[in-house]
Nucleic acid binder design. Structure first.
Lengths: 169, 169
DNA sequence: TGAAATAATGAATATATTTGCAAAGTAAAT
DNA sequence: ATTTACTTTGCAAATATATTCATTATTTCA
């Protein structure tokens, strides 16, 4: 899973730091023990949907496609703070607990992100089952969710411990 | 005002068409009687905040910075397509009809925007009552909602006429 | 108006990114 | 294990984009 790791690392770096050339990204990756050529990066960035925007200070920076909004008039966007209540791991799968009635919304949203880490999701009323692809660790799914829903883990951190006990009972 | 015209034309073209290289843009401009070199275009694009993203089909396209959003790490974002079904005016108030179970989500979101125009909201299961402040017209509330939920009115336009009849009956 | 300062531009060049192609790696099927 | 099909990768070359420098507008201000 050489490539998957690289893709995840690339996304993480671009989400966290300001990168302005592929060579710069190449060096950051090397610093994390991941090495490839700039040509490969170019291909990977395209696959990840990473683009490049002016940084407003005369330079450029790479940005994730998550940060692009589609101004297609057919979508309504909602920001809802405490939709996701808890995340639990079980049998190599991941269970997400939401507030009542919101599992399918949330699952739909996760599906829409089109992440390769996730083979599929099943949603009930307030519970979502996430099925990772073979070869994907739950840790990688966590990272993936954090990319799809930034701040997710911070948000549920406090509740998680308590709710785990309830859900697992 | 040679440059201003060019900048405006560039923005217009990029908003309306799919452009994948600066040379392509150069040709489009020439077609409109505006001519410059690629070097100038490069500088203009940076000034306008125009960036380049993968188009999802193996190519690239230029995009306006208007389409970039900033992810604050403390929010969870959901894209929900048809949450709001209809908007009806009555007695100087506004009634919003949502899909079942989503009134309170949506009302919470509207409240969170902290708009001056709105004195308060009351949500049932699939219906929200919006109470405008004294002196605020319903037209102003519409504008306000469009700001909070971009694309809202376009989305419900088709359904609105039919649903109005049902709700008002 | 007439310098002087500032901004805009093109031509050429430097830098950065993408791509064609062959080789190396992986997975699936026999 | 061996073949076959498919994916990933590096290298080198091709494109595309950004920048330097000299020159030409344009603005500012006395």
């Amino acid at each position: 899973m050489q490539k998957t790791n690289r893709l995840l690392a690339i996304e993480k770096i671009i989400a966290e730091e300001t990168i302005s050339t592929q060579d710069e990204l190449l060096r950051k990756l090397k610093g994390k023990g991941i090495s490839c050529t700039q040509a490969t990066l170019s291909r990977n960035l395209r696959q990840l949907g990473v683009g490049r925007m002016p940084d407003g200070e005369g330079g450029y920076k790479y940005i994730l496609s998550e940060n692009i909004r589609n101004v297609s008039a057919s979508e309504v966007k909602l920001n809802i703070v405490p939709v996701i209540q808890a995340i639990v791991e079980a049998k190599g799968l991941m269970v997400i607990k939401t507030i009542p009635g919101n599992a399918s919304n949330t699952a739909f949203f996760i599906d829409s992100a089109g992440r390769y880490e996730i083979a599929g999701t099943i949603a009930g009323d307030d519970t979502i089952l996430i099925i990772p692809r073979d070869g994907i660790t739950l840790q990688q799914v966590h990272t993936c969710l954090e990319i799809v829903l930034p701040g997710l883990h911070d948000q549920i951190k406090s509740k998680n411990h308590i709710l785990n006990k309830i859900i697992r009972k």
